[in-house]
Simulated assay, not measured.
Amino acid sequence: MTRVLVAGVGDITLTDDGFGVEVVRRLHGLPEGVEVVDFGLRARDLAFQLLDGYTALVLVDAISRGAKPGTLSALEHDLSSGDPVAPSLGAGHQIDPDTVLNMIVELAAAFGERPPGRVVVVACEAASFDEAIGLSPPVAAAVDSAVAAVRDIATQLVEGRHRVPGHSR
């Protein structure tokens, strides 16, 4: 059976870095085989949990690539080779998605395991990573669309019919 982990990551005390946490907080009613977890700042815990036989990961986080704040992106990575992930999602905050993905690859290798082959990062362009609780207006406005996108992607992954997104919304 396909097992999909939907992981929200981010720091709710750094404005838009709380995006992933807010998206997974609102996710409900997903099909059997999909587990949703708010990892917050615990990226290492996420890496360890993935050693429990998940076949796919949907990682939800904020990014900083210079796009208009609130822009959603869905990018797929294949971690099955065990090669490091090349920077593609932009930095700007404590632990960006590329760092999380590389931590997963390194931990899997250290334990002689394979990371999940299918990884889709659903990300939102942040307006701010300043110290404050609460999302900026453009990022808050993108949350419902992100919830729908994550629900669709996770459902497709668990049903084995997911296509590579490679687009921005």
Rank of each mutant, 00 (worst) to 15 (best):
G134S: 09
T99V: 14
M103S: 12
V34A: 04
T2I: 08
V100R: 12
E125P: 04
A56E: 00
V4Y: 11
V100E: 13
R151D: 07
T55D: 15
D11Y: 00
L27I: 03
S73H: 14
E35N: 12
A74F: 13
A154V: 06
D17M: 04
A108Q: 08
L89F: 11
D11W: 03
A62F: 05
C124D: 10
V143Y: 00
A108E: 09
V23W: 05
R25S: 09
D130M: 01
V85T: 06
H162C: 13
L59C: 07
L59P: 08
F19V: 07
D11Q: 01
I95Y: 10
L101H: 11
R169D: 15
G134A: 02
V85L: 02
G66N: 08
E35R: 15
D78M: 10
A67I: 02
H167V: 14
S88A: 13
G90S: 11
P84Q: 10
R3T: 14
R42I: 03
V164Y: 04
L27C: 03
V24Y: 12
I12L: 05
A108T: 11
A148T: 05
F19M: 04
I133T: 08
V105Y: 11
L41D: 05
V143P: 00
S73R: 13
S64F: 02
D98P: 06
S168T: 15
M1G: 12
E76W: 03
I104C: 08
D38F: 09
A140H: 09
H162A: 13
G92R: 08
I12H: 03
L107G: 06
E125N: 07
R44Y: 15
H77V: 02
E125R: 05
R169V: 15
E32A: 14
N102H: 11
D16V: 07
I153Y: 10
G8I: 11
H162D: 08
G66R: 09
P31T: 02
E76G: 01
F39H: 15
F48G: 00
P84A: 13
E76Y: 01
A146K: 04
T13C: 10
L101T: 12
D98H: 02
T13S: 13
V119M: 02
G10A: 14
A56N: 00
